[in-house]
Simulated assay, not measured.
Amino acid sequence: MDIIPGRSVGEAFPELTVELAALLRREGEDALAISVGGLRVHSACSCRDDFCKSFYTAAPPDGAYGDGHWNIMLEPVEGMLILDIVDDEIVFVEVLYRERLT
């Protein structure tokens, strides 16, 4: 997996960006959909599970996210996509059980 900190999510994963935006619009989350392409990759998930291609778009928390945190589970064609949102910003993109991340 090619997670390069500092790159925009749109540049690093163009297909995923389009998919996330469409799935968020389907859920009525237009503001989050608009924000996806401008997100920056902060770091890869450190779990090392072979089925995980997740990444942070903000510094990982030291413990729980706390107030203002919520999740949205999207319904992609392949795998699982779950977003962590804090104060209306996507901070973690959980990408599970997908063959590739593009």
Rank of each mutant, 00 (worst) to 15 (best):
I85E: 00
E94D: 14
L39A: 11
P61D: 14
I34N: 09
V93T: 07
R98E: 13
I3C: 06
R25C: 06
C45N: 06
R26Y: 02
G38N: 14
G6V: 07
V91Y: 13
D62Q: 11
H42N: 12
L81P: 01
G38A: 12
V77A: 15
G79R: 03
T102F: 12
L32I: 05
E15I: 06
H42Q: 12
E94P: 00
L24C: 11
D2C: 05
D84S: 14
F55L: 09
D84L: 00
E29V: 06
F13C: 13
S8C: 07
E27V: 05
V9N: 01
V77T: 11
G79V: 01
S54Y: 00
E29W: 02
T57G: 12
A59L: 10
V77P: 00
D88I: 00
I82S: 00
T57C: 13
V93K: 01
V36T: 05
G28M: 08
L16A: 12
I3D: 01
A59N: 08
R100M: 06
A21G: 14
I72R: 00
F55G: 02
P60T: 01
E19C: 10
A21M: 06
F51K: 03
D62Y: 04
A64V: 13
G79P: 01
G63L: 09
L23N: 00
P61L: 10
A59C: 07
E29F: 08
R48E: 15
L101R: 11
P14W: 09
G6W: 05
D30C: 02
A64Q: 14
A59V: 11
D49H: 10
R40C: 08
P5F: 08
F55A: 08
I90R: 01
I85D: 02
I72L: 04
G68H: 09
F55N: 03
S35Q: 15
